[in-house]
Amino acid sequence: MSIASAASSATSSATGPAATPLVEIDKVTGGYGGSDILSDVELSMTADQIVVIIGPNGAGKSTLMKSVFGLVRIRQGHIRLDGEEITNLRPDLVVQKGVGYVPQERNVFPSMTVAENLEMGAFLRRDDFRPQMRRMYDLFPRLAERRDQLAGSMSGGERQMLAMARALMLEPRLLLLDEPTAGLSPLFIDQTFERIKEINSLGIGILMVEQNARQALAIADMGYVLATGRNRYTDTGANLLDNPEVAEMFLGG
């Protein structure tokens, strides 16, 4: 528990010592099919945090995030959401527990309109989802303008916004983002990070994997550097940016 406790002591400065972690990844080993990608990985975060996972290709970043969402077979260890065991829970049940997930690719329904995409995001809601839809249109005014447009005909940046809005329709406690800025133009990258901060300020924990590591760490409370499926460095975003070893090995000097 050394790294995890180090992590929680690092976060305690921001949240106070008694806070239950929103997500707790506890010595998780697992992968897809027969082979393990993650070994003994630990991660812990609270609801007010933005946490970024970085590392080289094949380090298991996406795998780690997907393990929270039940998309990875976990052989050892535990994953808890607000103290509740969610290890190997089916994705649709994880969604019901309050976790939103935005995959890197294929994250919208291309032949459905923006409004229909949001409606699909709210599929599990039995109550009136229209107030939440309005909140999404307030948060992403661009989507409001295009509510009757087909998602497939929108630009990459707009689609990314829609994907996030769709994942927020169930009002999750935690939002998982898989490389939200991949393939976007610099202008949209800045905008996307702004939105992520805004979403976080609503009290939604953000756990994301990012290739634009410097920018992501700049807005992150905590950063986890993975290498070959293991924890390598765990520190605040600012400290990681200042760490010369991390900068040289993982941030391209």
Binding site: D92, N107, P110, M112, E116
Partner: peptide, 16 residues
């Protein structure tokens, strides 16, 4: 829901 599944099966499933 049918259109969603035909459009993007994985996303439809995680949407419940």
């Amino acid at each position: 829901a049918m259109r969603a599944m035909s459009d993007n099966m994985d996303l439809a499933l995680v949407s419940g």
